[in-house]
Design a protein around this nucleic acid. Structure first.
Lengths: 105, 105
DNA sequence: TTGATATTTCGACTATTATCGAATTATGAA
DNA sequence: TTCATAATTCGATAATAGTCGAAATATCAA
């Protein structure tokens, strides 16, 4: 994984409003949610939300499909796992013993 | 884990220069490295580096100990694992099946 | 002490990012 | 068509974050 992409993904999650959005989409699951639903669930104005969703989408953390006049957003679990894998590797590479404890927590 | 802390940790890693620093410290291991060594290894001006190290230290991702006139910085692996755990939980909570595949990568 | 080295803090400036209303695009229904 | 709804893009402003030199602090050695 290119570190530039990792930085983009981390940035996408490194903001309270976006982390909220992401967690909401995780809770919703693979079916995803329409932009309007996210806006009211997370209490964000449409244009600001759109901006955040774009950022998360550009780095691949979420995807989008149209359904009628709604845009449905959903978590890309593969991308999220790639990020978690990157962090685990980055943390444990060369020091596996240090990272085993705590990981079951 | 409080999401505010998660945001701070994610922010600490969501910047190329800081991610570099962090990865350098991971490679160095538990003994850590002096600020000066980090500065030359990562090619960052001392004052800027100090600013970044502070940010990573405030959220607990790294620690610091004095050794003579050097300040030795080292990764806090427990904190890093807490973060990884948070992301894994946040990603997999309620949808364990979605997150199993990909995790062995 | 005094001087040299390692690092941090301060302050000013620059750059990046977030926010929101207004205007625009896209779709569906009458 | 025409109207209403859902969402995005645009443009301006506000807020946050990064950078760096100069000054300050801490430690060690002579």
């Amino acid at each position: 994984m290119k570190t530039e992409l990792a930085v983009d993904m981390l940035s996408a999650l490194a903001y309270a409003a976006r982390l909220d959005i992401f967690r909401y989409l995780v809770r919703i699951g693979p079916d995803g949610a329409a932009a309007g639903d996210i806006a009211s669930a997370c209490n964000i104005t449409p244009s600001t939300l759109s901006h955040h969703l774009n950022q998360m989408r550009q780095c691949g953390l979420i995807g989008r499909t149209r359904q009628g006049r709604a845009q449905i957003y959903h978590v890309n679990f593969d991308a999220m796992n790639t990020l978690i894998g990157f962090l685990s590797d980055d943390c444990c590479n060369g020091q596996p013993d240090l990272c085993l404890k705590g990981n079951e927590k």
